[in-house]
């Protein structure tokens, strides 16, 4: 097996779309990559052939996707308030169902690894937990006061974390449907006095495989929200203590952190967009604030995923390209 070395990362492919992309995911078998865009469709590229397929059905943009635990279904979170189930391997996938899930945008959808539950969140300030088979709500979790940006299941399966615009991370017990505690990610939000508006929220949120850490990608140090002048950040929270552990960032890099993944080898990778254009992939050790490696992107990075081979990364970028990278030495 070729050794994984983030410092050797290099681009291996790119797939073009005519509109800026908003997010991306690689399916659990590593065959397809899916992307949302600034239009009403989802796009699927077969990694080996580059064949592009359009999945139509949503009436707004899609910025959140996940896969059912059995790898058969693509789940899509639409800003039309609906969650879609798509048979991801079909030649021309048609939505098996587009279910009204939230009032306003559905910002995130996540499937639990045991295949039993799905979680969504949205602009109605709600978190909903769904029976994956029946596609019916199990819990409707109220408590957030502002739009809910991200959800993720703790690897232990019992708890769900949800994060809102104000940097409030709530932890829900899925056995009781009750909120058990609140984690403080308020460093990820800021009130812009000049424009009288709040800016923040985790644009991606992931537990580490061992469940000890929760990583939130977003912003910090909001100076001019309407001009995009704020720092890009990955905040690490300690699951046991519930306290912020470390702010992972690269000095005063101004922009937004849009994606984060834990690599089984112990490092994190994050995708960020710079306010002036361009973007980066950052590679962090969880115990160090600064990235140990930075890889420049050709355009703003708006989504990130890692393939099952743990070597391949994909990014959705603002220039409409889906770019594929390998974290190994070039052949």
């Amino acid at each position: 097996m070729t050794a994984i070395d983030p410092k050797q990362i290099h681009q291996t492919a790119e797939f073009q779309h005519e509109r800026p992309l908003t997010t991306c995911r690689i399916d659990p078998r590593g065959r397809f990559v899916f992307a949302g865009a600034e239009d009403l469709n989802i796009y699927r590229w077969e990694l080996e052939t580059g064949e592009k397929t359009t999945l139509s059905g949503h009436e707004s943009w899609v910025r959140g996707m996940d896969f059912s635990a059995d790898g058969q279904w693509l789940l899509s979170a639409g800003w039309d308030g609906r969650v879609g189930w798509w048979p991801l391997g079909d030649r021309q996938p048609q939505a098996d169902r587009l279910l009204k899930a939230h009032e306003g945008w559905v910002r995130c959808v996540r499937a639990r690894s045991d295949g039993q539950l799905i979680a969504t969140c949205g602009n109605d300030n709600l978190v909903k937990v769904w029976d994956a088979g029946q596609r019916e709500t199990v819990w409707e979790l109220a408590g957030h006061q502002r739009h809910v940006y991200s959800v993720d299941f703790h690897p232990g399966g019992r708890f769900l974390a949800s994060s809102d615009l104000m940097g409030i991370v709530k932890v829900w017990d899925l056995q009781t449907g009750k909120e058990t505690r609140t984690l403080d990610a308020s460093v990820m939000t800021g009130y812009d006095k000049k424009f009288a508006a709040d800016m923040g929220g985790a644009r991606d949120m992931r537990f580490s495989t061992d469940g000890q850490l929760l990583a939130c990608a977003g912003v910090t140090d909001v100076r001019n929200a309407f001009g995009g002048i704020q720092g890009a950040l990955v905040l690490l929270l300690d699951w046991v203590t519930g306290k912020p552990l470390r702010q992972l960032k690269d000095g005063d890099y101004q922009g937004v952190g849009w994606g984060v993944r834990f690599h089984p080898a112990g490092f994190l990778v994050a995708a960020a967009a710079h306010r002036g254009g361009g973007g980066v992939l950052w590679f962090f050790h969880p115990d160090q604030e600064k990235p140990f490696h930075t890889f420049p992107l050709k355009a703003c990075g708006r989504g990130l995923d890692m393939a099952p081979d743990q070597k391949t990364l994909v990014t959705a970028q603002a220039d409409g390209y889906l770019r594929v990278y390998l974290m190994t030495a070039q052949a």
Binding site: G104, W105, N123, H147, F195, A196, A197, M199, A225, F226, G227, G228, R275
Partner: peptide
């Protein structure tokens, strides 16, 4: 609060 050079959609919301 409408001078939305960034995050136009979140801020208009």
């Amino acid at each position: 609060g409408y001078d939305t050079h960034a995050e136009n959609f979140n801020f208009h919301l």
